[in-house]
Design a protein around this nucleic acid. Structure first.
Lengths: 156, 156
DNA sequence: ATAGCATGGTTGACGTGTCAACCACAATAT
DNA sequence: ATATTGTGGTTGACACGTCAACCATGCTAT
């Protein structure tokens, strides 16, 4: 096999894998955002705030738990703050910032949960065989890097 | 099982699947763009131009083959044109537009091919067992929609 | 004291994506 | 003649992501 190009079979696998992920994931995300007004990022932020911080986390912890860099999170929180989903409060102990979910954010999250669950079932889980699940699990283990902070059940 | 929420196991599978795709795909794309200056979209456009059109296609055909809407493609081509990777020429038969790869575009594509192949091998193919491949193939078949135009070997 | 560095964040510029509105023109329908 | 619909594409606004530069502050080493 020439290491510098892919044969038919290799291409096929790569594109099937890429294609099914993007198609399935796209449908889930679209259904979520259409029915809740929350983007994937919004949902991830809100879910972590209540799951890991009981409603608030410092910005750096939030960034780590999502594997987002600080800049991305800063921009995203600015947009979310503008929409009233979260608040930011500077800490005095430290130069850190505390991110706090608002009641509007909490409501949005509560509404989003069942919708996300249904979409994930419909487009993903219902299509999986036991073999698929085993395969997914093992591949994830095999390709895991120093996957630090994401040890608990994170959002979609 | 409550249809309105996901249990631990369902969550776990969903996040493993999402996580490994994004991690692997991210590494491939990053390696490609770092070593070639082409984004995933650039590469996809250029590859289809030569593969399906021997160097040129009308814009609508290109859009269909990539499953991009016309607006997305229009914006992307504007940027690519600015960088000298493609040219656009209006057709007189029709109100269509012909998209033509430039020699710079062709060179960039030629350089990108082996780099893409190596990255896809390193981060994806080398990690797959036969069972994974079977699983990927079957899941793709199971979730396929009216998948119209993308019948041939498309780029990353 | 002061220079260097790490921490925690913000900002601006720019590439990428999506949506809705628009435009030019042709083919039909009323 | 005038309106409707379809085709093929552009445009502007705005959400999202990434990168590099910046800022304030505190810690360490000289």
């Amino acid at each position: 096999m020439d290491k510098n190009e892919l044969n038919e079979e290799e291409m096929r696998i790569w594109h099937l894998w890429k294609g099914s992920f993007q198609s399935i994931f796209g449908r889930v995300v679209k259904e979520m955002s259409e029915h809740t007004g929350l983007s994937e990022g919004d949902y991830a932020v809100l879910d972590r705030l209540v799951l890991f911080g009981n409603g608030s986390l410092r910005q750096q912890e939030l960034a780590d738990s999502m594997d987002w860099d600080k800049s991305r999170l800063s921009h995203h929180l600015t947009r979310m703050e503008k929409r009233g989903l979260v608040t930011r409060k500077p800490l005095d102990t430290d130069r850190g910032v505390q991110v706090i979910i608002t009641s509007a954010g909490k409501s949005a999250l509560d509404e989003a949960h069942p919708i996300a669950a249904k979409a994930i079932r419909k487009y993903f889980l219902d299509q999986l065989t036991d073999q698929d699940m085993e395969s997914i699990t093992k591949l994830a283990e095999r390709t895991k890097t120093g996957n630090s902070a994401s040890s608990e059940t994170p959002p979609p």
